[in-house]
Design a binder for these strands. Structure first.
Lengths: 333, 333
DNA sequence: TTGTACGCGTTATCAC
DNA sequence: GTGATAACGCGTACAA
């Protein structure tokens, strides 16, 4: 399975490899007749330049790695599509890798990408361990690196972030104006975005002299989220509590909460209001349709795409943090 | 940002690059003391071999490309995770690329991967155009290629496939034994898997002397599927029809169908039974829970992972087609 | 306008 | 055990 090289083309066209290279890259003047000969040879031999060799000498692979904790979460899918669309347009190929939300996997995958000399990396929802340990900060010195959402306190990295804080506050304010008094907060175990929202929630409830109540489920991103959220909410209601509103950290949880409330005979939104987070498609297929905080996922992705591009093409190393505002989508819950 | 090379390490350790290479790859005897010197130099210089250079000479990147039409479809996510888990274990890095279901994108992405010298490729639900045009058959001669599901008639390619045919037949048989008489079939526009199921449906209905009725919606994979399916089913019922069962080509459609039936006042499963396809998580979050045909997605992915591995490591070029059986999951619909 | 020769960072080959 | 040196396939000064 010997592949044809630039040598073969040169020989077939009766010119030197230099000339072939020039025709292919179209970066130096070549006589029209020569160019034609070369192009013909390229066609008949179906020559495709070996990008490994090219990358080796140019020190650039025109490749960007995208890391995500999960490919089952529609939130990430949308963001990824946003990043992708921008980078593709700029002539980059993107490779998607998933880490199952494990910090060790994250490091491992990153090493693999670095070893393969990607030109840059975008990490969605980076693991907090790797942020606080200074791993990313160190990494950012050696390769263009952009983090999207996730823990961002005092780190020397570039970020593009959703304003989850603002979103949570907006949702809570809305619930208050609607007359809700007993607002419950539903979150997964470990994610910085959950922490942020919880903080806002606690502070908000305290400021309004209301009692706070937090329900916790295991993960939050994986397949079991819905079932776990349902259980948690149903249990809570069964225990005699009478919540009149619930704020969930993402739409999967909200779906589960809805299901749990229904199963215990509560009517949504009459008895209990529910607001989710992300505005993914699933918030629209439930009955009633879920109100949610729109995080503008596509836009977030595009923002990230443009930013990493700038980082790769200029020497812009200053670590900038860009926040994207959120919007409240009131539907039927 | 000059990276440290094997040269630097050799110099620091006072040995030749050959020796350094031997220590790193651990493939030739090296005196213990020398090895130690080299390892220290590697550590202090934080040397990481350039995989591009290595791949160039070894003619292998230890990399596999996975193509999917969509990263929003939970069916594909599961399959991908299956493939991934196997290949990772074998020491390969996988790169995921998505094509938005466009045949032209598919070709483009494949070229990019080939140019980057991936050792193999797994294509989920390949576009029919590229199958019938012989594109894949041609490609398979130059690089280990495995297709998963999709049109497989008379092509010289290796396949791993779900037995959608058997699954559809199983579901229909079940509905009959449950006494259903007016069974409707719901499908999306273009996908070979839909075609297969439709064929079985038509043949089955004819054999049982029942009238067939097919509802068609636009795409089937994208975000609008649920809404479109709901509309289609609601319209159908409003037109005066009284279906007592519906077989949908995937779970998204089944969710929409359920919603449509409900909106027209039909009770599921009392008035009308619904069976979906795939057994994705969403089939479990509806009320009632959806019955569906389990396609064993993870297992399918693992099968694919093992198969492409064999193709890459041996010269096993015979194009084999492996079918994975489906199972009927009866829940509440 | 074209060609020669070197270098990118590794591993493979063959001496010693 | 170890070290020169030639590959791998391509881009690009430099020379012609």
């Amino acid at each position: 399975m010997k592949r044809t090289t630039i040598q073969d083309v040169a020989q077939a066209a009766g010119v030197s490899i230099t000339t072939v290279s020039r025709v292919i890259n179209n970066n130096y003047p070549v006589k029209a007749s020569t160019r034609k000969k070369v192009e013909e040879a390229v066609d008949t031999l179906k020559f495709k330049p070996n990008l490994l060799a090219r990358s080796l000498i140019q020190n650039s692979t025109k490749t960007v790695g995208i890391l995500t904790p999960s490919i089952e979460n529609l939130f990430f899918s949308e963001v990824i599509k946003g990043v992708d669309s921008i980078l593709k347009e700029k002539g980059y190929t993107t490779f998607l890798c998933h880490t199952e939300g494990e910090a060790t996997n994250e490091v491992e995958v990153i090493h693999s990408l670095v070893d393969r000399r990607v030109d840059g990396m975008v990490v969605l929802d980076p693991r907090k361990e790797n942020v606080v340990s200074g791993y990313f900060e160190e990494l950012a010195k050696r390769v263009p690196l952009l983090l999207v959402n996730g823990y961002a306190q005092g780190t020397g990295c570039s970020y593009v972030l959703n304003d989850g804080e603002g979103g949570a506050r907006m949702a809570l304010k809305y619930l208050i104006t609607e007359g809700c008094k007993r607002i419950v907060f539903l979150r997964g175990k470990k994610s910085h975005s959950y922490d942020i929202k919880e903080e806002v929630y606690l502070e908000f409830m305290k400021a309004h002299g209301m009692e706070s109540r937090i329900l916790r489920i295991k993960d939050g991103n994986d397949i079991k989220t819905v079932e776990q959220a349902k259980e948690a909410v149903a249990d809570y209601i069964r225990s005699g509590e009478k919540p009149d509103a619930l704020l969930a950290c993402n739409d999967w949880m909200a779906v589960g909460a809805l299901s749990g409330a229904k199963s215990e005979g509560l009517l949504v939104p009459k008895d209990m209001r529910i607001i989710g987070f992300d505005n993914t498609i699933i918030s629209m297929i439930t009955e009633p349709k879920l109100s949610t905080v729109d995080q503008q996922m596509t836009k977030l992705g595009q923002l990230a795409g443009n930013r990493i591009y700038k980082m790769m093409t200029t020497k812009d190393i200053e670590n900038q943090k860009t926040y994207l505002e959120t919007r409240l989508m009131i539907r039927e819950s």
